[in-house]
Computed example of a mutant assay.
Amino acid sequence: MPTSWKNSYRSIYYADAPAPDDPHLPLKETALLVIDVQNVYLERPARATLTPAQQAHYDAWTPFHERMHNQVIPRTAALLKLARAAGMECLFVRIACQTEDGRDRSLSQKMPGWNNLLLPKSGLPSQIVPQLAPAGDEITLTKTTDSALTGTNLRLILHNLGIRHVICTGIFTDQCVSSTVRSLADESYDVIVLEDCCAAGSETLHHKELEIINMIYCHVMSSAELIEIMHLGQQPKP
Score class of each variant (00 low, 15 high):
L149I: 01
A148T: 04
Q175K: 11
L124D: 14
T173Y: 01
E187L: 05
C168G: 01
V177S: 04
I163V: 09
I128N: 12
C168S: 11
Q131D: 12
V191L: 00
T180C: 00
E187V: 13
L161Y: 08
A199E: 10
D146C: 07
Q234F: 07
T150W: 09
L154P: 03
M230H: 06
V191F: 02
T152M: 02
H231R: 15
G162A: 09
L161K: 15
T140N: 03
D186F: 01
E203N: 13
V220G: 06
I157K: 14
T173Q: 00
T150V: 12
M221E: 03
L194S: 00
F172G: 00
I227W: 07
I213Y: 00
D174W: 06
E203D: 04
S188W: 13
V177I: 08
E225M: 05
S126N: 11
G151Y: 03
T142F: 01
H219D: 10
R182F: 02
R182T: 12
I229L: 04
I157T: 13
T144W: 00
G136F: 01
I163R: 12
L184Y: 07
T152N: 04
M230E: 03
V191K: 04
V220D: 07
G233S: 06
T144S: 07
H207A: 13
I167L: 01
D137S: 14
K143P: 05
A148G: 15
L149Q: 07
E211P: 10
Q235G: 14
A199N: 07
L158V: 01
A133D: 08
Y189L: 00
V181F: 00
P130A: 08
L205H: 14
T150G: 10
L124C: 10
D196M: 01
P125W: 10
G170M: 00
L205A: 14
E209D: 12
C198L: 09
A224E: 02
R155H: 13
I139R: 15
K208W: 08
D146T: 13
L141Y: 07
E209P: 08
V166G: 01
A200H: 04
T152C: 09
S183M: 01
F172T: 13
R164V: 06
Q234H: 15
E228H: 06
H219T: 15
L141K: 14
L184T: 14
L154H: 06
E209H: 14
I167W: 09
G136Y: 10
V193C: 03
L158D: 03
M215A: 13
M215L: 10
H231A: 14
L184V: 11
H231E: 11
F172H: 14
N214Q: 09
L161S: 11
E138T: 10
D196V: 05
D137G: 11
S178I: 04
N160P: 12
Y217M: 05
H231W: 10
E203Q: 15
S179H: 10
A200C: 02
T173N: 00
E138P: 07
A199M: 09
G170R: 10
A133N: 09
S178E: 01
Q234L: 10
D137H: 15
S179M: 05
V181A: 02
T145E: 05
L161P: 07
Q175W: 09
L141D: 03
S147A: 06
L132T: 06
E228L: 04
